[in-house]
Amino acid sequence: MIRDITLGQYYEADSVIHRLDPRVKLAFTVIYIVSLYVGEGVLAFALAASFLAVIIILSKVPVSFMLRGLKSIFILMIISVIFNLFLTQGEEIFHWWIFRITKEGIRIAVRMVIRLILLIMGTSIMTLTTTPSRLTDGLEKAFGFLKIFHVPVHAVAMMMSIALRFIPILIEEVNKIMKAQQARGADFENGGLIKKAKAMIPLLIPLFVSAFRRADDLANAMEARCYHGGDDRTKLHPLKYRKRDAIAYLVLFAYLAAIILLRIFTSELIKIVP
């Protein structure tokens, strides 16, 4: 199951999108989310979808890979579709027993599905095309101004990148401990909630112990390699804006402007044609 989640997974390829500065992609993610909620009407969604399509093609990430990420939210999507479909008041077009479907319900449900799909695919672009370390570098730089308010930006970024490195290791560890306890007759599947929760103890305690041991080892390893915080640290790949990043920013803002214009335009349209 864990393998199916593409969110937060890097896809290795050599593309323009991969080479962009992570800060640009960070801005893209924020702007894209905003655009999905600002945008109204068929045209706006069509624009958002085609904009994303172009980026996906440029990124060389296979579409099948992106669609796999949607699998994990499929259930969530179904549930919200059902809620919206049946619980929205309005013009009735179908009625059976206690179920009624309205025109408004269909419209909201469809809009929501499109929004959710675009949202998941749009936000996964960043993590799919940016290595975790570039991403944390980007975050560290982008939020660097917070240092003025004594926010330990470097420390947080370092913690994030370490967490990213250790997540797969810890997942594997959970697997191992689980099997080891199953070999001793542990049962993680059956029983009520309390029994299940209790069964987790033999899993969680060894996991914590091991996480602490790893943290301790890692602290030693970092100290042995002269780590002393973010001051005077240099970078192997320092972040520098290039021409392509400037162009990307321009495209991005043009897109946002188009979405806003479309919104103003369509709401005008609605006013004219009620």
Binding site: A183, R184, G185, P202, P206
Partner: peptide, 30 residues
Amino acid sequence: RQKVGLVFQYPEYQLFETTVLKDVCYGPKN
């Protein structure tokens, strides 16, 4: 799993109880 005992690599990483005796009791308890 009781008849075929499997000791994984670095089995000490599965220890979790407060005492050795209690930990060894875990299998029979299950």
